[in-house]
Amino acid sequence: MVAILLWLISAGAAFAAGPRIVSMNVCSDQLVLSLADPDQIIGLSRFSRDAWQSWAAEKARNFPRLSGEAEDVLLLKPDLVVVSLFDKRATRDLLKAHGLHLVEFTVPRTLDEVKDQIRAMGDVVQHPDRAEAEIARLDATIAHARAAASAHHYRVLPLERRGFVSGDHSLVSSLLAAAGLANAAGELGVGAGGFASLEAIVKLRPDFILVSEAGDRAEDDGRAFLLHPALERFYPQSKRIVLPERLTVCGGVMLADALDRLTEELQRVTQ
């Protein structure tokens, strides 16, 4: 990352309108869409328009969608390619071998790391002022969420399909902690995350469970776990905080919206 930023500084004169950018990852898509000028964006990942994963899916429809392979990126000849370290190594190596400049982002696990990535992307797209404005908005929503939970010490269990829980070393856990909530998954002994049995969840008795969607329909066995009669008995809708997955699956400016939604949900379930 440091090498890329130094290269950007040295090439600044050539990028009077900002570098032309391709993003190959759904999380970097959202950072680019939030901070870059539209005419800087010449291609986004193949999942950029997936509303389940991307908070910016509708906005992404205005830009070309790539296949995920190196060939169409090479045809576009971008100034920079933004990727995740989880993108295919062979593709990244091929792009580098053809002389393209890659900016590689890791997966953030804390809100501080998210802020660092927003700043880094602001530098990459040459709009650091926009990055600082988004960080200020994120800080404001953190304060708002904390105020909503300040009178209580709620234990919340982030619960996903098939009984997967996000542990202490996860972005969701950092989000809860910022709002003054405790992640009950720590009591199950999981780190970044792991599966918990129905019996362990019921025995744990958190104040609330955090789920990605409401409703009483199960389209498959994974979703059916969340609608098990035992969970519905102890955790009806009044005990479920609903935070759509597209607001938490990536680290970025959408976390301000996630915290606003979390505040609204806290007010709903505690009134």
Results as ranks from 00 to 15, higher is better:
residue 7 W to F: 10
residue 13 A to P: 04
residue 21 I to G: 02
residue 22 V to I: 07
residue 24 M to R: 14
residue 30 Q to N: 07
residue 32 V to R: 04
residue 38 P to E: 09
residue 43 G to R: 05
residue 45 S to P: 12
residue 47 F to A: 07
residue 47 F to C: 04
residue 50 D to K: 11
residue 50 D to E: 11
residue 51 A to I: 10
residue 54 S to L: 03
residue 58 E to R: 12
residue 58 E to H: 13
residue 60 A to N: 05
residue 64 P to K: 03
residue 65 R to A: 08
residue 65 R to E: 13
residue 73 V to F: 07
residue 77 K to G: 04
residue 79 D to W: 00
residue 85 L to G: 11
residue 89 R to K: 15
residue 92 R to P: 00
residue 96 K to R: 14
residue 97 A to Q: 12
residue 99 G to I: 05
residue 104 E to W: 06
residue 104 E to A: 02
residue 105 F to S: 03
residue 105 F to T: 12
residue 107 V to E: 07
residue 110 T to L: 07
residue 111 L to T: 00
residue 112 D to G: 15
residue 115 K to L: 01
residue 116 D to L: 12
residue 120 A to E: 10
residue 122 G to T: 09
residue 133 A to T: 01
residue 140 A to K: 08
residue 142 I to V: 14
residue 146 R to C: 14
residue 150 S to F: 13
residue 151 A to P: 04
residue 151 A to W: 08
residue 153 H to W: 12
residue 156 V to R: 07
residue 156 V to M: 03
residue 167 G to K: 15
residue 171 L to F: 06
residue 174 S to A: 15
residue 174 S to N: 02
residue 176 L to E: 08
residue 177 A to V: 06
residue 184 A to W: 08
residue 184 A to C: 10
residue 194 G to N: 12
residue 201 I to V: 15
residue 206 P to Y: 07
residue 212 S to F: 11
residue 213 E to L: 03
residue 214 A to N: 08
residue 215 G to D: 02
residue 215 G to T: 03
residue 226 L to N: 05
residue 232 E to C: 10
residue 233 R to A: 14
residue 236 P to C: 01
residue 239 K to E: 07
residue 240 R to N: 10
residue 243 L to M: 11
residue 245 E to R: 14
residue 246 R to I: 02
residue 258 A to H: 13
residue 259 L to G: 00
residue 260 D to S: 11
residue 262 L to V: 10
residue 266 L to E: 05
residue 266 L to I: 04
residue 267 Q to V: 09
